[in-house]
Design a protein around this nucleic acid. Structure first.
Lengths: 212, 212
DNA sequence: AAGTTCCGAAACTAGTCAGTTCCGTATATA
DNA sequence: TATATACGGAACTGACTAGTTTCGGAACTT
């Protein structure tokens, strides 16, 4: 069951005729709590009681809305999609380097780090749960590369870089190295690291080595 | 308790005076079984019974040798160190590209993939268990970057690339992108991908874009 | 106010699994 | 052969947790 399914379910029972209506904002609170616990404990370390306590809800309430722990987590991951970056207001500075540097903002970095912590808690499951894997890919993994793809395509269109650049490969450099640095090396992803990444790896790979 | 501790314990009871001696090769079988299960199920999915069954051993035997599941896993990870690549016989072809390409061998790739599957099953724990994190870093993470560092240093020494190259950054490109591709994108790491990685990302980042 | 529905809290069920104990057997020394 | 030791297997304990049920109360509708 996905968030969309829930919305649908509710739209078929119009504005709720009698008694207290199902509160949609309650769903969001619970999903947020689930993400917090997930980031701190991982999937197996997370218990339904933890989530209920964090959301100040009863365990029964969670089971009234989601049929199982797994479905709750899938839904939580799917709803993690656009917590920070809106695709509409991406920077457009006129240069590839300008666009990439403009993405380095503390809130964006924090958002990415939380998502990575959630991902870390899920990875061992992803190999065995295709539905969860799909939710994670759509919500977390794809958007990061998509933004880079957009920047690169713009740069090609304006003639800044060669159209022969392997966009698929280059757009994954930053997600790969940020993820590895966080999850494997446990080192901070700070502005200095990201600037180095742009100037020493990404720009040279598109032929903007010294010209930038 | 580490493998070293076990060896020590055994060396203090000389060649075992009476009865059946503790069989050191039995340890290796059990640790291998643990790695197999770990790679397939992840830490939380792995049970002691599974490991015992796979090693054709009794559960009690495992607990005679390791005090807990966690210690067993830490030991297994630590022993994963040099299953394939020996630091002595690294290729030395005379060019950076030659060295990097020479590392692309099916057995090496398979070995790396298994290690990555084990890592995937551990990541959510690594954030909460420093001892395990250290074992994983020493056995899996550090060696991969170390090899690249060696190749890069050689290239600097022979004047092939500039001494200003950020070795720490460049030596992590390949581990990062291979890990991400495997764990997040669930795409195969084949020869074609690795060649592209070398020619399109790594070599340009050290100033060998077209000259190679 | 009456009726309905959802709520949080808590008790409960059932299954799983880490870790322990026990036992009959196999293998080595002496 | 007698003895000591570690073995595999199986039964057991205790803790934990997913999921269910129950219940009194709160909030909304009419």
């Amino acid at each position: 069951m996905t968030q969309l399914d829930l919305d649908e379910r509710r739209s078929t029972e119009p504005p709720a005729k009698l008694g207290r209506p199902l509160d949609v904002t309650r769903d969001a609170d619970i999903l947020d709590a689930a993400l917090d616990v997930l980031a701190e404990e991982g999937f197996d370390g997370m218990t339904i009681d933890m989530v209920a306590a964090r959301a100040k809800a009863g365990k029964a309430t969670l089971y009234r809305r989601w049929p199982s722990k797994t479905e709750l987590v899938i839904d939580a991951v799917a709803c993690m999609k656009n917590s920070d970056l809106n695709f509409e207001d991406l920077p457009d500075t006129g240069t590839l380097r300008g666009d990439l540097v403009a993405m380095i903002k503390p809130p964006t970095i924090r958002d990415a780090e939380k998502k990575l912590r959630v991902m870390a808690g899920l990875i061992s499951l992803i190999a065995r749960n295709p539905e969860l894997a799909e939710a994670a890919r759509v919500a977390v993994i794809a958007p990061r590369a998509e933004i880079n793809r957009t920047f690169l395509q713009r740069a090609i269109d304006r003639g800044e870089i060669s159209p022969d650049v392997d966009i698929a490969m280059v757009s994954n450099i930053s997600p790969s190295m940020v993820t590895y640095r966080t999850m494997m090396l446990a080192k901070p992803v700070d502005r200095e690291f990201l600037i180095s990444l742009i100037d020493k790896i990404i720009l040279p790979s598109v032929g903007l080595g010294a010209a930038a």
